[in-house]
Simulated assay, not measured.
Amino acid sequence: MRKQTWLTTAGLALLMLWGEWANWRASRTLVGYVPGTSEAVVVLGYRNAGMRANAMNRWRVRAGLRSIDPAAVESRLVLCGGPCAGPRTEASLMAEYATRARGYRGELVLEERSRTTWENIAFAIPYLRDVDRIKIVSLPSHAAKARHYLAQQSPRLAARLVRGAEYRFGDWMPLKPLVALYGLLKAVRDRP
């Protein structure tokens, strides 16, 4: 019995570590070091049926806010998402949370037309053209997918991608293996 318990515990620990590694790796996909004094932090929305930002969108806003470089001369927070699951846009719900609950007072842009990740990026591009550095924030595998989309839609802008602060060791640890697996399955399914 002890051996079975030990094997189960070891298996769960390995699964958690794999989830951490997969998310860490995804957070470093298609990013580099880009010097500059201006930045845009693009936060991708998640289906929101209610009249308040859901837990996932609140987490993404917090990750976006911690991604802002305090040394940057200019930082722009770009919140993306149309009314995909409810009457209000994901962007407006996230903006309300960022300003009212988190006290954000910086430059804020709402992209409220998009309904997919591809559209998130396509419709955010006009707000990215005049900055030196671009950060895309979401769950790490989702952010990696969005960075791939930016590379397809605008390679010139993709060259300005730097890492956001969406990955933190231990954050959502029990869910990270599921998130990583979901990201892998979506990547395989979305291949041309």
Score class of each variant (00 low, 15 high):
residue 191 R to A: 14
residue 161 L to I: 11
residue 52 R to H: 11
residue 43 V to P: 01
residue 111 E to G: 08
residue 179 V to W: 14
residue 127 Y to W: 14
residue 178 L to R: 06
residue 45 G to W: 12
residue 101 A to Q: 14
residue 33 Y to P: 04
residue 154 S to T: 02
residue 40 A to K: 05
residue 136 I to S: 02
residue 171 D to W: 12
residue 51 M to N: 15
residue 128 L to Q: 03
residue 7 L to Q: 08
residue 20 E to F: 03
residue 26 A to V: 14
residue 180 A to T: 02
residue 37 T to K: 14
residue 6 W to A: 15
residue 17 L to G: 12
residue 124 A to F: 00
residue 9 T to A: 15
residue 140 P to F: 11
residue 184 L to A: 15
residue 186 K to Y: 11
residue 17 L to E: 05
residue 155 P to D: 00
residue 150 L to Q: 04
residue 3 K to F: 10
residue 129 R to S: 11
residue 70 P to Q: 03
residue 53 A to V: 11
residue 146 A to S: 09
residue 148 H to Q: 15
residue 88 R to K: 14
residue 121 I to E: 06
residue 189 R to F: 11
residue 18 W to N: 00
residue 76 R to A: 06
residue 24 W to M: 12
residue 104 Y to L: 10
residue 59 W to Y: 14
residue 123 F to I: 06
residue 13 A to L: 15
residue 31 V to G: 02
residue 57 N to Q: 13
residue 48 N to K: 02
residue 10 A to H: 00
residue 123 F to Q: 14
residue 114 S to Q: 01
residue 72 A to R: 01
residue 172 W to A: 13
residue 90 E to G: 11
residue 176 K to F: 01
residue 150 L to E: 05
residue 163 R to G: 13
residue 106 G to K: 11
residue 79 L to A: 04
residue 158 A to Q: 02
residue 167 Y to R: 09
residue 127 Y to T: 11
residue 114 S to W: 01
residue 131 V to C: 02
residue 118 W to T: 11
residue 71 A to D: 13
residue 150 L to A: 08
residue 38 S to Q: 07
residue 85 A to N: 03
residue 121 I to A: 01
residue 101 A to L: 14
residue 149 Y to P: 01
residue 80 C to V: 13
residue 33 Y to C: 05
residue 32 G to T: 12
residue 166 E to Y: 08
residue 8 T to N: 00
residue 16 M to A: 15
residue 114 S to I: 03
residue 84 C to G: 09
residue 190 D to C: 06
residue 27 S to Q: 07
residue 31 V to N: 01
residue 183 G to R: 04
residue 30 L to P: 02
residue 17 L to T: 08
residue 55 A to P: 05
residue 174 P to R: 06
residue 180 A to Y: 05
residue 36 G to D: 07
residue 162 V to R: 05
residue 155 P to G: 03
residue 125 I to M: 11
residue 27 S to I: 07
residue 137 V to P: 06
residue 62 R to M: 14
residue 69 D to Q: 09
residue 36 G to V: 02
residue 32 G to L: 04
residue 56 M to W: 09
residue 50 G to Q: 12
residue 145 K to R: 15
residue 67 S to L: 08
residue 129 R to G: 07
residue 14 L to E: 04
residue 81 G to W: 08
